[in-house]
Amino acid sequence: MADEDVTVLIATDADIVVARGEGRALAGRLGFSRTDATLIATAISEIGRNILVHAGAGEVRVGRAGDDHRVAIVVVARDEGPGIHDVKRALEEGYATGGGLGLGLPGSRRLMDEFDIETKLGHGTTVTMSKWRERDRHAVVRDAPDRDG
């Protein structure tokens, strides 16, 4: 990640809209398709809302990764909330907390290519997710054969 990264502080639901707007804008600049840009924006929206609902505040940073031939967008969503007690369950379908459908994490993971959670009870949670451009996906899969397709 570099200085072209954009960080949006999340404290109200209006901030979620800003964060996903930045995500969509960067996706456009990097040459992602319109559909992919919407997937990315939706994932950001979901994760941003998670921050609000569970931690009250946090930040979402979007940036690029890869090189000239393989471009990815990377989203890092960080909060200093209570942390996730059972990550495995939280990533399963239908896990519900906070009185909602609770689909935030597994759903976002389905929209992106890579998805990582770091969490510590009482300290906070960092979700890192990235998506490769469609045209680069072949090269990425070929060079890392043990990756899920």
């Binding site: 559909t35 919407t38 939706t42 459908l101 759903g107 976002s108 389905r110």
Partner: peptide, 12 residues
């Protein structure tokens, strides 16, 4: 594109 996202996300 929103329809695609909703379906891929597997919203109920």
């Amino acid at each position: 594109d929103v329809a695609v996202a909703m379906v891929q996300f597997r919203l109920n």
